[in-house]
Design a protein around this nucleic acid. Structure first.
Lengths: 344, 344
DNA sequence: ATGAAAGCGCTAACAA
DNA sequence: TTGTTAGCGCTTTCAT
């Protein structure tokens, strides 16, 4: 079935040696124009394509990098992937993408599987499970083998490798301050997937802003939970029992769900309650109303991670030159926040 | 740097031959329990892992499949990928994902690149560009080489391979009929990315439903265009000049944008105007209000495609047994349509 | 029970 | 200018 032609077959057909064919196809100066031409034409005619596997085996380089993604349905990760993909392609690398579905086991399996010659390096984001249980053995093993890893978004100090992250505390601080400046007095915060330290950092930023501007934090205005079950009920409950005029939603889903609740209650956004979101994704952009939110430059995150890894693979950076890159965020103003500001 | 141990090194260390090691590691009956144990222990101790590349070169099978995705930010595709990923993993296959960004050139390049030993088969969705220009040479070439391809979502009859698709006409027909049953008299339809035949089929289904129930199609109620620029303006314009009480939006973005327009105009959904969407994704689910829509079972699409391909790779189906699988759709009722129905 | 040798497709040092 | 040979890491006959 497989009709792919090999160098050997060309050699036989043309009555030359294998190495002559190899050299001719690589346009070596050693080969006469005449035979070169003959061989190249024959190769073209028969659609010769070098076998990537054989080449990789030879060079000990596969020119492909492994990407570990916890959940491809998360818009942020999909955009990171795109960023990675872009620079990988530019630099002639393939990517092999694996989705862990937030499972520790899957993460370990795939990473072990790939680190046997299939890939030159990893760009990875840990699963929630891995992070919770702090089981990092597989990362240590792989790094020890000399395979570079760049971690993005979710990281941990116990893993000594390159990292690309968002400054969550600072960004949340700025978001909260923005609400305060636009005259919100009672600001709530909502966070799902509370298991992630990332989200904890965001709440930290929120608290920091309150403290800084001398607002007493109110635990009744802080909703933290793991999934999205009952979230709308909890929000309703909070609104029933508290005065709220601004809500900082720490992830996309929370933002969308909060919008739904406010709309259902007939509350005007932003006049009655303003909303500010985090991770400016599709839900923020296409919501009703579109949400003001903290834009995370997912694409840049992917680009930076890929560049860093490839530079390492190509020995432009020594293996043990470890760095953590912090990707800035930017507030994108849309219709869910008020336009009048207090200076302070 | 790379400390990965090879079979050869084990052989040297233990003063046995390479083939003995190979056999021992594969638990061959030819090797004495004693040496087997010795070798296996040594291998374990030194974390020996067989080199995947070498194995693939030998077997002429890589156990990896190439996935071509036009745009990873499209929720539908991301979900298909997940479905593929799931069955691939179950059956011991890796996937190597490539994003074409709807570019013909990128599609050709990556597919050619991969079809040289790197992958055993493809699961692909053509770029818009490819489909528009009807340039299918690369598919023909690859199929001719004996590399199987399963096409999903966007297909063309000139490519003779397995396909997994949605019945767009029928689904659109049902969606439109649903609106009519819920007492909508003047139903508009909105479609972006009109370049795709898929969307044309959906409009066809809409027209079919109208005709069937003796409603005269009105061109003023049909918006078709390629991107999302000015879409909101056009919708507003349509609403200014026509009586409309139901809108069928043929893709997720149209649905979200239509919702925004209606909300901005203070039009009540579904009392004044009902909306029904297509491709039940994140925007429909988390919109305000959540949209009733045609659910496309993206996950199933991916699963079916992967199963089919792998069956072929493992010779459970002959290469030239070609089939087109049609994945059914299902209407998911949410808050954007009325609950009262007319029987007809 | 163990080992030598050939080969998967290719490159590269060395010989001719 | 062309060819021979060894080797990348591994499996698999075929000897021993």
């Amino acid at each position: 079935m497989n009709k792919r032609i090999t160098i050997k077959q060309i050699a036989q057909a043309l009555h030359v040696s294998i190495s002559t064919v190899s050299k001719a196809l690589n346009d070596s100066y050693e080969i006469s124009e005449e035979t070169k031409k003959k061989i190249q034409e024959y190769a073209k005619l028969h659609k010769y394509k070098p076998n990537t596997l054989a080449l990789s085996l030879q060079n000990k380089k596969t020119k492909t990098i492994g990407i570990i993604i916890p959940n491809i349905l998360t818009y942020f990760f999909a955009r990171v992937l795109r960023g990675i993909e872009k620079v990988a392609t530019e630099k002639g690398y393939n990517i092999i993408t694996c989705i862990t579905n937030e499972s520790y086991k899957k993460e370990v399996n795939t990473m072990e599987m790939l680190s046997n010659g299939t890939i030159d390096g990893f760009i990875a984001c840990m699963s929630v499970e891995t992070l919770k249980n702090k089981k990092f053995e597989h990362f240590h093993d792989i790094l020890e083998d000399g395979t570079p890893i760049v971690l993005y978004d979710r990281v941990h100090k116990d893993i000594n490798c390159d990292k690309v992250v968002t400054d969550n505390v600072k960004s949340a601080y700025k978001a909260t301050r923005f609400l305060m400046r636009s005259q919100c007095k009672n600001i709530a915060v909502i966070s799902t997937s509370e298991g992630l330290s990332i989200n904890k950092f965001r709440i930290k930023g929120y608290l920091k802003a309150l403290t800084k501007y001398e607002v007493e934090p109110n635990e009744n205005l802080i909703i933290r939970q793991d999934g999205e079950e009952n979230l709308k009920e909890r929000i309703n409950h909070m609104l029933d029992n508290n005065e709220v005029d601004g809500i900082f939603t720490v992830d996309e889903i929370s933002g969308a769900l909060t919008t739904q609740v406010l709309n259902e209650r007939g509350i005007k956004i932003p006049e009655d309650i303003a909303i500010i979101g985090f991770t400016n994704g599709i839900l923020s952009r296409y919501g009703s109303p579109p949400l003001t939110s903290v834009n995370r430059f997912a694409h840049t995150t992917g680009e930076v991670a890929a560049s860093r890894l490839i530079d390492k693979l190509e020995d432009k950076i020594p293996f043990d030159d470890i760095k953590t890159e912090i990707i800035r965020t930017q507030l994108v103003e849309r219709d869910s926040t008020k336009k009048m500001f207090i200076k302070f």
